[in-house]
Amino acid sequence: MMNQPSPRKFWRWFDPRYRQIGTWAFILNRITAIGLTVYLVLHLYMLSKLVQGPEAYDAFIALAKTPVILFGELLVIAAGLIHGLNGIRVGFNSFGFGLQRQRETFIVLMIIALAGTVYFAVHMFGWA
């Protein structure tokens, strides 16, 4: 029957309709985890350029300094901040600490993540 639990219903993890802020935190943690995992693979690929000699590595570094790639790196920083800060919240909540204020904690931590992302953006794109 269609209504039963199934691993194929994982897409429901990413459906925020009619849900509370806790689900937004749940979704953000999963999306940022996927993003960070993909970045880790790309990072290892980039490091593999080292074995191809200085020319290959320098060419890759030149590419990494383009605005599109810089923006991608900013997303990685944002994902790291969101996932890390939210992870601290979940860690504390998981053992009963601060659970009654989990919504407020999430909002404050996401404001910190946003501020951190803006700080890095200003410095990465030379707006300072």
Binding site: A25, F26, S94, G96
Partner: peptide, 25 residues
């Protein structure tokens, strides 16, 4: 995985999320 929706919809003030986390403790 800490979405806390159970507590949001509970019509009877059971607060399952708090109870689960407290049980973990």
């Amino acid at each position: 995985h800490s979405a806390y929706e159970c507590t949001a919809v509970c019509p009877s003030n059971v607060n399952p999320a708090w109870r689960i986390m407290n049980l973990r403790r």
